[in-house]
């Protein structure tokens, strides 16, 4: 049901400014004294010293997961590159030579670049990965860097980043 919102009367209480000012100062000074004496209600944090824990779902910088033997889980299927709305992923596929222990998977990312400056952290790449090879569960955000190339993340760097718990592996049960 619609109802009409209240509009206060304008009698001497309001019109004389002072009572409402005093009431307002009651609110502000309550905060002031609560913050100065004892209980601190501050919501801001001293950022680099105090770090707000990111929730588990936080979409941070990317990482590439590894197989048990340390090889990249990624097979350069380009799904993430396809799904990325910011076009920040660039992959060049390579194939394992015959006789290589991983020759049965045939394909691996010879190059894997993520331009974290272009990235919009939407997480579509993680969703698009059919191998659980790319993840954003690192709990890291894109920090300021001194030069643009520093945020062009390359394959080996991405492989070396761990998740928030320090793990480099994945939940993908496929051993192959």
């Amino acid at each position: 049901m619609p109802y009409v919102v209240k509009r206060p009367e304008r009698d001497i209480w309001e019109q004389s400014y002072i009572p409402e000012t005093v009431r307002g100062m009651g609110v502000t000074l309550r905060h002031f004294f609560r913050n100065v004496i004892g209980r601190r209600d501050t919501v801001t944090i001293l950022y680099p010293e105090v770090q707000r824990p990111y929730p588990p779902r936080f979409r941070g910088l990317h990482r590439l997961t590894q197989r048990d033997d340390g090889s990249p889980r990624c097979t350069a299927c380009m799904c993430c590159q396809t799904a990325c709305p910011a076009e920040c992923i660039h992959i060049v596929a390579g194939s394992y030579p015959d006789g290589h222990p991983l020759a049965f998977v045939e394909k691996y990312p010879a190059e894997f670049w993520i331009d974290e400056l272009r990235c919009v952290f939407c997480g579509l790449c993680v969703e698009a990965c059919p191998c659980d090879a790319i993840r954003m569960d690192t709990g890291l955000h894109a920090r300021p860097v001194e030069a643009r190339p520093h945020l062009m993340y390359e394959r080996n760097l991405l492989l070396s980043i761990t998740d928030a718990k320090g793990d480099v592996l994945t939940a993908n049960p496929r051993k192959k």
């Binding site: 097979t75 350069a76 299927c77 799904c79 045939e106 191998c131 496929r174």
Partner: peptide, 10 residues
């Protein structure tokens, strides 16, 4: 096989 990621035909 679950090969779409590495299969050129996909």
């Amino acid at each position: 096989p679950v090969d779409c990621p590495i299969c050129d035909q996909s």
